[in-house]
Design a binder for these strands. Sequence first.
DNA 1: TTTTGAGTTGTTCGA
DNA 2: GTCGAACAACTCAAA
Length: 493
Amino acid sequence: MTTVVWWVRRDLRLMDNQALAAALASAGRVVPLFILDPTLLSSSYVGDKRLAFLLQGLHQLDADLRARGGRLVVRRGDPVDELARLLGESGAEAIWAEEDFSPYAQRRDDRVARTLPLHLTPGLTVHPPGAVLKADGAPYTVFTPFSRKWKTLSLPQPGAVLPAPDRIPALADVHSLPIPTEPALPSAVPFPAGQAEAQDRLRAFVGGDNPPIYCYGEMRNRLDMAGTSQLSPYLRFGMLSARQAVVAALSATAAAPDAQARKGAETWLNELIWREFYVNILYHFPDVRRQSFRANLKDIAWENEKAAFTAWCEGKTGYPVVDAAMRQLVQKGWMHNRARMIVASFLVKDLLVDWRWGERWFMQHLVDGDPAANNGGWQWTAGTGTDAAPYFRVFNPILQGKKFDPKGAYVRHWVPALRRVPDKFIHQPWQMPLEVQQKVGCIVGRDYPATIVDHAWARERALAAYAAAKKAFSLPSEMMLNTNQALEEEVNE
DNA sequence: TTTTGAGTTGTTCGA
DNA sequence: GTCGAACAACTCAAA
């Protein structure tokens, strides 16, 4: 009887797992393996909440395997060494894994494949990067044409979603480390790990009469309502397959009772395509991890003031919607998408802090923190990325608060000091007359911070800094152009 | 090769 | 209070 290894990386599920299915189809016995990789675990981009979610996911996966006669083997070390050792111990002839496209994953898998029989299957995305290309073979750098092309490629049908295998027999004599229990998931983090929870959430989002997905178009921007799917952590670690999510979105679109419902389902599908778009961008342009995608905004004169950054991290900027969101992030390990844009715009444009500082802070706290999507989002907001927001688009934290948290419920939930502030002032408490401040027990500057920067002034400063960066970029190249012209003229003479 | 239409998520100003 | 235009060009994708 042949044996193969199913190497789990960010596909912590038995359901609709093409790597597991291929492993089972190729051999009589499968050894499920997860390697705790010190290179990944010690990264400054990893935080306790996401690590805890991953560990809890491993416990769940192990429980799911045990229910099928198997178990998860856990090792710690360099993947090449650990895989070679396990192959030797178990007599396994091959390794099956779901392909991952981040720069580190690519390097790691190249190293493994050099000496070991590694087979990769699709699954992280519905269409792998390299499948969605322009007519001339180049990758897309604008979302809308990317999404159009993405939709013309063959889309998964409901029948394509693979059920979890019934039995995955264990190899009795293979050693495994205990799955770590530290760090534990804080009770405030509302994401129990595992594929069963992911299935429940997906069903709740797309199933039943008038499911939330049909209101997604209108509700998704509201900070004070639960209009989003809350599935991102599960997609991040593959506790839900991208394919199953896409099938659910397509089915919901097909069954939509009216135009508004269809719009909602299509908008959610678009979010899934955004996820794949940024996987593509990071795959084809790995430099975006370190620097601006746009050459003309590589050298912005950031202020990078430590105190301002700290105030942002701690949710003490004096702008209620920013502070609420930053506190939500640290406590829950998750932030509403609209809020991510608001706080990112505030850090980059109002405080003129390098977007990479914010990118790292997000990665340290987000349970769903994904290198591709997080980088894409930050570069979009900073205006430095592919298909980015125009540089003059600066979010006004007061207006955004009024629009998307009209009664201030979101702000009050995360910033208790503002609980009794009247609606009229909830997004600009500094405008409260002193007697109102006293009456509601919220003295600005004592119970709640005064604003650390004036928005109107900061907006002008940001526009000037961006304009200067662009000008500094264009001047040398103009000089180069002039030099070339001069040379040409000389030659012509 | 050239041309044309289009591009996630906003804000401000003035009518 | 509501509405449309300006913001400032620029680059991409596709015909």
